[in-house]
Amino acid sequence: MADDATKDTRKVEDLSFKEASVELEQIVRSLEAGDLELEESLERYSRGVELLKSLRERLANAEQKVRVLLDATDEDAPVTDTTAAPSTAYLDE
C-alpha cells in the first residue's frame, strides 16, 4: 500500500534542494521495498526522475557559481614574482 507520507504533490521547483533530495531518497526506498502496485511504482519512478533532473541542474548551477567566484578571486589575487628572490638552497648545505 502507498505511504502518503512519501507523496509530495508540490511542484519540484518549489522544493528546496534538501527537500527534493529527501523526497527522492524516500521514493528510492519505497521502490526498492517492492511493496507498491505497478501504477504507484510508475508514478513514484516518474516523480523520482523529475526530482533527480532538478537536483542535477541545481547542482550544476551551484558548481558554475563556485567556478565563477573562484575565477574572480584568482583574478583579484596579487601575483608575486619569485624569480628575482634570492635562492635559499644554500641554507640546507
Rank of each mutant, 00 (worst) to 15 (best):
A2T: 08
D3R: 01
D3V: 01
A5S: 10
A5Q: 10
A5M: 07
A5W: 05
K7E: 13
K7I: 12
T9C: 01
T9F: 14
V12I: 09
V12D: 09
D14M: 12
S16F: 00
S16H: 10
S16N: 10
S16I: 04
F17C: 09
F17A: 09
K18I: 03
E19Q: 11
A20G: 00
A20M: 07
S21K: 08
V22G: 06
L24H: 03
L24N: 01
E25S: 11
E25C: 05
Q26W: 09
Q26A: 10
Q26M: 13
Q26I: 04
S30Y: 01
S30Q: 08
L31M: 00
A33G: 10
G34Y: 06
D35I: 08
L36P: 04
E37Y: 11
E37L: 09
L38W: 01
L38H: 02
L38C: 07
L38Q: 12
E40W: 01
S41T: 00
S41F: 06
S41R: 07
S41Y: 04
S46E: 10
S46V: 04
R47H: 04
G48T: 00
G48N: 02
V49E: 00
V49K: 11
E50G: 04
L52R: 04
K53W: 05
S54P: 12
L59Y: 05
L59E: 13
L59D: 09
L59K: 07
A62E: 11
A62L: 14
E63F: 10
V66W: 12
R67H: 02
R67K: 14
V68A: 13
L69I: 06
D71I: 07
D71K: 09
A72D: 15
E75S: 13
D76K: 15
D76Q: 15
T80Q: 10
T80K: 14
T80N: 07
D81F: 14
A84Q: 15
A85F: 15
P86G: 07
S87W: 14
S87D: 15
T88G: 14
T88N: 15
A89G: 09
Y90A: 06
L91R: 13
D92W: 03
E93W: 02
